[in-house]
Design a protein around this nucleic acid. Structure first.
Length: 493
RNA sequence: GGCGCGUUAUCCAAGAGGCUAGGAGCCGGUCUGCAAAACCGUUAACGUCGGUUCGAAUCCGACACGCGCCUCCA
């Protein structure tokens, strides 16, 4: 059992060996806080959340740093549009980010630094880069001279000539080379600024991540993550800055998550085809969104659609229904301390026992293989099926079945703690989902109950025609009646 | 133009030389006054053409189609 991760830098899955045995330093690019987060941010958040959780589960002492970039052109533009200052905008969207990520059940990183709290560190790196000849001041700005860093573009596997062949590079007259990028930008009147050796200004994009990662994780650390779109230019530039300044390897393993697509096309602000997390959560439960994200491998593109979200919801309901059934039994039977003997189990019981025995090894095997959560979910479903079969045939709950059921339940708690699922009791979660659907109906629960009573009376009188009429009427309004020996309940579809 | 990725059954989606992935659906069954729901069972696949191999979804090559990055992006 050994963790293997896909490293963008080498393009291969590699055995994960941390710099310091037992400890992991991980830095993930957070957000530039100028607007509400979309589901692409949700995916990146959830993906690195389970990576963080699994590393801890695997026994590592993890220092997880996820930053807020709270000074940037886009923030300033937004502030100008609204006639307010950059701080107001940044603080508003930091809070919104925190709320959204909390709803999605993300564990808090060890540190969540802000760029503006690290201006000193930023200036210090820039000074080092200038001293080493990697950067130059130019009319109030400071630029990184990409030609002085031979390894430039080694992460994205390109070269400077090809990049320029694209001919879309802006040639600033302050730059020596068109691909040079800003480390420090002199401030225009009315813009926020900090004092620096090059005059009043603010950091460029990229340098804040070099500064904050070094501050909390050192010059070399284990994992750096982010969305695929950050490979170039952001991460490429971070490497140039950090390795140029420190003269040593920056990051050992580069991890990048795939995009969220809409109709097989990348969702992005510039295309305008994006959904904010807030919009999506009005329609879908946050755990459903998380489950959907986990249903595909983190590096693959994932297609966001109502159909796919509905399927995720169905799948999650299937698991939660099973867990709720297990809970019901466990709640009504005190846990026995008798030792269960497997002889007491039927064939189906033994099969479930086998699933239970295999569960954690298979789960770890899936997650060890580059955090394959989709495969891990498959194991959960197999266990659900075995458990349902067992519940269907088990009439008398004696010690052996009870212990087996308790074992199954415990495994879902354990796997759930890594995947960030099942944090609310399943029965409650199912109720919540039903309540959310009910609120979309034109009928109130009382009206539904009234019709159900009328139907019950009709059915007792063997007036099935009237009974079926009521059933059809409710169905037309989206209410499914569920008859059982205990009476009639209902659900919303 | 440069670089990279993908194509798995009706749909979503793992797998990466020989071992039932999984989910949704279809169909069959249990249950039911009949249904529905739930549960159980079952079905089916590896883009095309070559090559390597005893054996290829899996490795290699070509082709087709789709997508991404090369400008702010998770």
């Amino acid at each position: 059992m050994a963790l293997r991760v896909y490293n963008t830098f080498t393009g291969e899955k590699e055995l994960f060996v941390p710099l310091t045995p037992g400890r992991v330093g991980m830095y993930v690019c957070g957000v530039t806080v100028y607007d509400y987060c979309h589901i692409g941010h949700a995916r990146a958040g959830v993906v690195f959340d389970i990576i963080f959780r699994y590393l801890k589960y695997a026994g590592f002492d993890v220092t997880y740093v996820r930053n807020y970039t709270d000074i940037d052109d886009k923030i300033i533009n937004r502030a100008n549009q609204e006639g307010t200052d950059y701080r107001t905008i940044a603080d508003r969207y930091i809070q919104a980010f925190d709320e959204d990520m909390a709803k999605l059940g993300l564990a808090k990183p060890t540190v969540e630094p802000k760029a503006t709290d690290h201006i000193g560190g930023i200036i210090s790196i820039i000074e080092t880069l200038i001293a080493k000849g990697h950067a130059y001041a130019s009319d109030g700005d400071v630029y990184y001279a990409v030609e002085t860093f031979p390894d430039y573009l080694k992460l994205s596997g390109r070269n400077l000539e090809d990049m320029q062949a694209g001919a879309r590079v802006e040639v600033g007259d302050k730059k020596r080379h068109p691909m040079d990028f800003a480390l420090w930008k002199g401030s225009k009147p009315g813009e926020p600024w900090w004092q620096s050796p090059w005059g009043e200004g603010r950091p460029g994009w990229h340098i804040e991540c070099s500064a904050m990662s070094m501050e909390f994780l050192g010059k070399t650390f284990d994992i750096h993550g982010g969305g695929k779109d950050l490979v170039f230019p952001h991460h490429e530039n971070e490497i140039a800055q950090s390795e140029g300044a420190n003269g040593c390897q920056f990051v050992r393993y580069w991890l990048h998550n795939g995009f969220v697509n809409i109709n097989a096309e990348k969702m992005s602000k510039s295309l305008g085809n994006f959904f904010t997390i807030r919009e999506v959560l009005k329609k879908y439960d946050p755990e459903t969104l998380r489950f959907f994200i986990l249903s595909a491998h983190y590096r693959s593109p994932i297609d966001f659609s109502d159909q796919n979200l509905d399927e995720a919801q169905s799948g999650l309901e299937r698991i939660c229904s099973c867990l709720a059934a297990l809970d019901e039994i466990l709640n009504s039977h005190p846990r026995s301390y008798e030792t269960a003997v497997s002889d007491n189990l039927t064939q189906i019981g033994l099969e479930l026992q086998e699933k239970v025995n295999q569960f954690l090894p298979r789960f770890a095997e899936a997650m060890d293989d580059d955090f394959n959560a989709a495969q891990a979910l498959g194991i959960l479903f197999e266990t659900v099926r075995a458990a349902n079969r067992f519940l269907a045939e088990t009439k008398a709950i004696t010690a052996a079945p009870l212990i087996l059921i308790a074992n199954v339940r415990d495994l879902f708690v354990e796997a759930g703690s890594v995947l960030g699922l099942f944090t609310t009791p399943p029965a409650l979660w199912l109720e919540g989902v039903k309540a959310a659907r009910t609120s979309q109906l034109e009928l109130t629960p009382d009206e539904i109950e009234l019709l159900i009573s009328e139907r019950a009376a009709a059915r007792i009188a063997k007036n099935f025609k009237r009974g079926d009429e009521i059933r059809d009427l409710l169905l037309a309004k989206g209410v499914h009646l569920l008859d059982s020996t205990q009476g009639t309940t209902w659900d919303v579809k």
